[in-house]
Design a binder for these strands. Structure first.
Lengths: 138, 138
DNA sequence: ACATTATGGATGTACATTGTCCATAATTGT
DNA sequence: ACAATTATGGACAATGTACATCCATAATGT
């Protein structure tokens, strides 16, 4: 039940960018600043680009920009860009057992967990994350 | 963000036992009934025993019994018996970066997720899981 | 004594995550 | 046109760990 390091990288990168929403950041700058392996960050940014969270520009002075304002990007967007749809349990052994055993007693619970988690992620915008962390500083 | 198969096995096993709370079940019966590899189930049961969720007896007619009634066992107990304390994020690169970067903007969110998840698990007893699944049948 | 059952350790395997390397394409300034 | 810069994309390697298997041993009941 752990967030992947990859998602952590993505959130960190976008948080970093969120501080100056209009600026273009080179992959190199993000990588160095956030201590993320450059070539690995490349893969991550690719997903964020194809999912429409950031725009990219090749060439000198190229890099990445947020497509939306930090108040319009929430953690669910980021999560799903990286991991796909949030699933807590995969109904293991689907074909075999689940058919055999009436209704699985677990599913409703994990679904409640899923729903509540999605709600929290959805309610948390990049903007708020940043505001909150600044507030914590004082 | 997935439940481990191991936890699934544990929940399944305990659910199975919860239907007849006083009966002693052999590992073999549980394994066959729930389609869990016998020797792997052994490891799982071991943890449940040491965490006090079930009691074991060696020898003929031996096996496992729940130590508490299904209404006193909740999913948090089971989760923690198998996985240890619930953690969503591990504050990666602890020593290096987290010191550098003010307060991590992510932590509060993941903590909210953690809290809410723990609450749901705590609120769900074995008993209720079973009742609910029977209700779904009709 | 024997059959049954759990315990404990050692070991293996398969798979996904994470990370690395490199060649190429796009863009910009000169 | 050229050189420098930057992202893109594919292939590959390392690693970790969850899941599984095997076997020898200890406990217990008949």
């Amino acid at each position: 039940m752990q967030i992947s390091r990859t998602l952590d990288y993505a959130v960190r990168s976008l948080s970093y960018m969120g501080k100056k929403p209009i600026v273009t950041f080179s992959m190199k700058e993000i990588a160095e600043n956030q201590h993320i392996p450059l070539n690995y960050l490349a893969k991550i940014m690719r997903r964020l680009v194809t999912r429409g969270l950031v725009r990219s520009r090749v060439g000198p002075d190229g890099g990445y920009v947020l497509t939306k304002s930090p108040s319009e990007i929430n953690l669910r967007h980021i999560y799903e860009a990286i991991e796909g749809e949030l699933r807590i349990i995969d109904c293991m052994d689907k074909d075999k057992i689940c058919a055999l055993y009436e209704t699985c007693p677990q599913l409703p619970v994990w679904d409640r967990v899923r729903i509540s988690m999605i709600k929290i992620l959805e309610d948390t915008t990049l903007d708020e994350m940043l505001k909150q962390s600044r507030r914590d500083l004082t």
